[in-house]
C-alpha cells in the first residue's frame, strides 16, 4: 500500500526537479522580464545564464524593451483559456495560501500538482490524526510537508495511537520542529520521546495532554534539550514510573514557561521547576502535593513574571511571599 505511493512521490520529485532548477535560475529575472518578453522566450535559450548583474545587459535588448513591445500585442490578455497561476511565481501562490485556513489549504492542495507542491513546501503548521495507521502515511505526508515546524498529533481515546516507531520516524522527517503537541498518544513511550529529543534539536515548545509515557518521557526531552522554552503537561500518567521518579533539567535549563495541569505526579516536576533559573511563567492547576518548598524557591527568581495557581495546596503565607516578589 505504501510502496506505490513512494514511487509516485519520487516521480513527482524528479518531474519537478527540472522545472525547479530552471525556475531557480531565472527567478531573478522573472518578475520584470519573463512575462514581458514571453514571445521572445522561444528564441532565447539564454535563460540558463544566471546573470543577476544588471550592468551586463545587451544593448539591443534595451531597444526591444523600449520599442519592441508593439509586436507583443498578441500576448496581451492571452484569452480566457489561460491558467492565471502560470504567470505567477511560487512565492505569490504561497502568498495567497498563507491567508487561508487549514481546511482551505487542504482543498487547494488538490487543485493541481503545482499547488500540491507549493502548499506542501509553504506549510509550517500541521495537525494530524495520530491513530496507529498514520505510520503508513508518515513517509509520504512528510515528503510533502517538508517545512513543518509546528506539529500536533492527536488521537481520540477510543483509538490506538501511533507508537514509538512513528514518533521517531516523524522526528527524523521533521528535524526543524519547533513546536510539538501530543494529545492522547498513549502508545508513545519514553523511547519515542528520547528519539524526539535527539532528532529535533530546535524544539522550543512541548505540549503534552493525556499521554502515558510518564515522567520519564518528559525527562527524556527536557534533559536532552538546550533550547526548550515552554513545557505544558496535562494529565500525564506513567505506568513505568517508579516512586520518586523525577524530571530535572541538564543544569542549564532554558525553560521559560512551565504549565502543569491535573497531575497526580506533579511533585516529580519540583526539581525541574527549581532548577529552571530562567523561568518566567509558572502555572500549577489542580496538582496534588505540597508545593510550599517549590514555590518558596521559585519566588526568589527575579525572572519570574507570572505565577498562576488553581486548586493547589500550600501555605497562604508562602504564596504571599512568592507573589510579593514577582
Amino acid at each position: 500500500m505504501l510502496k506505490p505511493y513512494i514511487s509516485l512521490q519520487l516521480h513527482r520529485f524528479f518531474s519537478f526537479h527540472a522545472f525547479l532548477s530552471f525556475y531557480n535560475i531565472v527567478k531573478f529575472h522573472f518578475l520584470s522580464v519573463f512575462l514581458f518578453f514571453f514571445h521572445f522566450m522561444g528564441q532565447s535559450p539564454s535563460t540558463s545564464v544566471p546573470s543577476p548583474d544588471i550592468n551586463r545587459r545587451d544593448v539591443s535588448n534595451i531597444n526591444r524593451f523600449g520599442y519592441g513591445y508593439g509586436d507583443s500585442s498578441d500576448d496581451f490578455n492571452g484569452g480566457s483559456r489561460r491558467d492565471y497561476t502560470d504567470e505567477i511565481p511560487d512565492e505569490c501562490l504561497a502568498g495567497i495560501l498563507q491567508f487561508l485556513d487549514a481546511g482551505d489549504r487542504k482543498n487547494c492542495s488538490v487543485v493541481s500538482r503545482r499547488w500540491l507542491r507549493v502548499e506542501g513546501e509553504s506549510r509550517q503548521r500541521l495537525s494530524l490524526n495520530a491513530e496507529a495507521k498514520l505510520l503508513d502515511f508518515v513517509p509520504s505526508l512528510f515528503a510533502r510537508f517538508d517545512s513543518v515546524s509546528k506539529l500536533a498529533l492527536r488521537c481520540n481515546r477510543k483509538s490506538t495511537s501511533v507508537n514509538d516507531d512513528a514518533m521517531i520516524l516523524i522526528s527524523l522527517r521533521c528535524k526543524n520542529l519547533t513546536r510539538l503537541k501530543l494529545r492522547g498518544c498513549r502508545e508513545i513511550t519514553e523511547i519515542g520521546m528520547l528519539g524526539l529529543a535527539k532528532n529535533c534539536k530546535n524544539l522550543k515548545k512541548l505540549s503534552i495532554v493525556s499521554c502515558l509515557f510518564g515522567v520519564k518521557g518528559i525527562h527524556a526531552v527536557v534533559y536532552n534539550s538546550d533550547v526548550i522554552e515552554e513545557l505544558s503537561v496535562k494529565r500525564l500518567r506513567g505506568d513505568n514510573d517508579e516512586d520518586g521518579e523525577s524530571v530535572y533539567g541538564n543544569g542549564c535549563s532554558s525553560l521559560k514557561s512551565i504549565c502543569l495541569k491535573e497531575l497526580a505526579n506533579g511533585h516529580s516536576f519540583m526539581q525541574l521547576i527549581i532548577g529552571s533559573k530562567k523561568l518566567q511563567t509558572l502555572k500549577l492547576i489542580g496538582c496534588v502535593g505540597n508545593w510550599d518548598l517549590t514555590l518558596g524557591t521559585v519566588g526568589k527568581l527575579n525572572t519570574l513574571v507570572e505565577i498562576h495557581l488553581e486548586k493547589v495546596q500550600m501555605l497562604v503565607l508562602l504564596l504571599l511571599q512568592s507573589v510579593a516578589r514577582c
Binding site: 529575472h29 522580464v33 535563460t47 543577476p52 545587459r57 545587451d58 535588448n61
Partner: peptide, 12 residues
Amino acid sequence: MAEEVSSQMNSL
C-alpha cells in the same frame, strides 16, 4: 538578451 534586463529591485 531580454532576460538580462534584470529585475534587480532596489539595486539602484
